[in-house]
Amino acid sequence: MAALNSVDSVDYQTLKDELGVSYSLLTKHATLLEEAGLLKISKDFEGRTPVTRLRLTRSGRRAFAQYLEALDRLVAGLT
């Protein structure tokens, strides 16, 4: 979510390489996030080459922002 929050979209291979994870792990997590409505996965072509692209949905960006706000509150300390 953090990596996707900084871009409009990213291709699968680039995200996999940047995160340093396996295809199966990224696919599993991306599928779960898509099922939750937080991520959109699309299949396109660049020339004749198939490319899978991932992007956060509006709900995904909102959920990530709420997550960061919660972390900020925790870092600020409990009162």
Rank of each mutant, 00 (worst) to 15 (best):
Q66Y: 01
G77M: 07
A30D: 00
D17V: 04
L68S: 00
V7M: 14
Y67M: 11
L74Q: 12
T27N: 11
E46K: 13
Y23A: 05
G77I: 03
L32S: 06
S9Q: 08
T27P: 01
P50M: 12
D11S: 10
A36S: 11
R53A: 13
L26N: 05
D44I: 10
L39D: 08
G37A: 12
E18P: 01
S22C: 15
G37C: 08
N5P: 00
A76Q: 11
P50T: 15
R61M: 11
A65D: 00
L74M: 09
A36E: 15
L4A: 06
L4W: 04
S42T: 15
D11W: 02
S22F: 13
A76I: 02
E35S: 15
T27I: 05
G20Q: 04
L68A: 01
L71R: 04
R53Q: 04
G20Y: 10
S22P: 12
N5R: 08
E46P: 07
L25G: 01
A2T: 10
S9T: 09
R62Y: 10
F45P: 00
K28M: 07
E34W: 03
L71S: 00
E34N: 14
G20A: 12
G47T: 06
A36F: 01
H29K: 15
S9G: 14
A70D: 03
L78H: 06
V21T: 06
Q66C: 08
E18Q: 15
K43R: 06
H29V: 06
L74R: 14
E18W: 06
K40Q: 07
R58P: 01
D11T: 12
M1V: 02
L4F: 05
D8K: 08
R48K: 14
S9N: 13
T14Y: 04
T79S: 06
L4V: 03
E69Y: 00
L15K: 12
T14P: 01
L71D: 00
K16L: 09
L33F: 07
F64Y: 10
E34C: 15
Q66I: 00
R61K: 14
Y12R: 03
S59T: 10
T31W: 02
T31A: 09
L32V: 07
L78I: 12
L26P: 03
T52R: 12
R61G: 02
Q13A: 15
R62P: 01
A76M: 10
R55H: 09
L68G: 00
T31H: 13
K16P: 02
Y12D: 08
G60A: 10
L68E: 00
A70Y: 02
T31K: 09
Q66K: 04
R73L: 14
L32D: 01
D11A: 09
T27E: 06
T27M: 08
K43L: 12
V51N: 14
T79Y: 07
E18S: 07
L26A: 03
Y12S: 08
S59H: 05
A76E: 14
L32H: 03
G37M: 04
Y12I: 02
L38F: 07
T79W: 13
L33N: 04
M1T: 02
L56A: 05
G77W: 00
H29R: 12
V21D: 03
K43W: 05
L56R: 01
A63S: 11
T79G: 15
F64R: 01
A36D: 05
L38W: 10
L32R: 06
D17C: 07
R73C: 12
D11F: 09
A2C: 13
D72I: 08
E46C: 13
G60E: 06
E69P: 00
